[in-house]
């Protein structure tokens, strides 16, 4: 089948403005959008620029806006998109470097700001720290994050207030706050209680829809918010 692929392109060395380019590609229904981008790059126009690496949804390189929704290009099939026209644009809300490549520095700075690393107190044991399966289950979901930025850049609160720490950073804070081996929840809750922290979430659920790892993001944000409130109570 033939697909009309419309890509929002921008090359700072050539273009004043982003502009749409249209390519016709021969596709098979099981192809992924990443396959189509490769076909364009390798058969029609090598200047088309995007990030990708693993090609199976685990590295987080190729999140982009596909038919109006943030997704990984390597994880969405042509037949799932239904229809012969597919539109592709860079993730919203981050500065575009070129075509589908956005500047991720700000996103990673927010990740770092929530102290996303285990901080246990007490002496280091000889063997592993024990943890029950039940305790581990409390944060299992939020360990799945691949930092692709699909959630944060789908969030209207983030578009409106770029200082908002955003769902991805909260998810990564959650991963440690609810880890029975960690003792620095307090410090992270303090950070997230800030006015650019969890309270900016308006439970729009865009993030949940965007997450390619199917993390229950609003649930995680809710649990963090509750922990903040309980802490002050």
């Amino acid at each position: 089948m033939q697909i009309e692929l419309r890509v929002l392109r921008y090359d700072p060395e050539r273009d004043q403005q982003p502009h749409e380019a249209t390519y016709t590609v021969e596709a098979n229904p099981m192809d992924r959008v990443l396959d189509l981008l490769h076909k364009v790059k390798y058969e029609q126009d090598g200047t088309l620029t995007f990030r990708r690496s693993c090609a199976h949804g685990v590295c987080g390189s190729d999140a982009m806006l596909i038919n109006g929704r943030n997704r990984l290009a390597c994880k969405i099939r042509v037949d799932q998109l239904k229809g012969k026209r597919i539109t592709v644009a860079p993730l919203p809300g981050l500065p575009v470097m070129k075509d589908l490549v956005v500047d991720m520095e700000g996103f990673f700075a927010k990740f770092r700001s929530v102290h996303p690393y285990l901080q246990p107190s007490g002496p280091v044991p000889e063997r592993e720290r024990l943890q029950s399966a039940k305790d581990r289950a409390k944060f299992d979901d939020t360990t799945k994050c691949i930092l692709c930025a699909a959630c944060t850049t789908s969030c209207p609160s983030f578009w409106a207030q770029p200082f908002y720490v955003g769902p991805a950073a909260i998810v990564n804070a959650h991963r440690f706050i609810f880890d029975s081996r960690d003792d620095a929840a307090e410090e992270r809750l303090e950070i997230l209680a800030d006015r650019d922290g969890v309270w900016r979430c308006r439970t729009v659920f865009n993030c949940v829809e965007a997450c390619p790892r199917e993390i229950h993001i609003t649930q995680a944000i809710l649990e963090v918010s509750r922990a903040i409130v309980e802490r002050h109570a």
Binding site: A133, F176, R181
Partner: peptide
């Protein structure tokens, strides 16, 4: 592997809480 656990790696656990 033990050091990785100390760094925070969320291993699956046995019924008695070990890796």
């Amino acid at each position: 592997v033990i050091e990785l656990e100390h760094m925070g790696l969320p291993f699956n656990r046995t019924p008695d809480g070990k890796i």
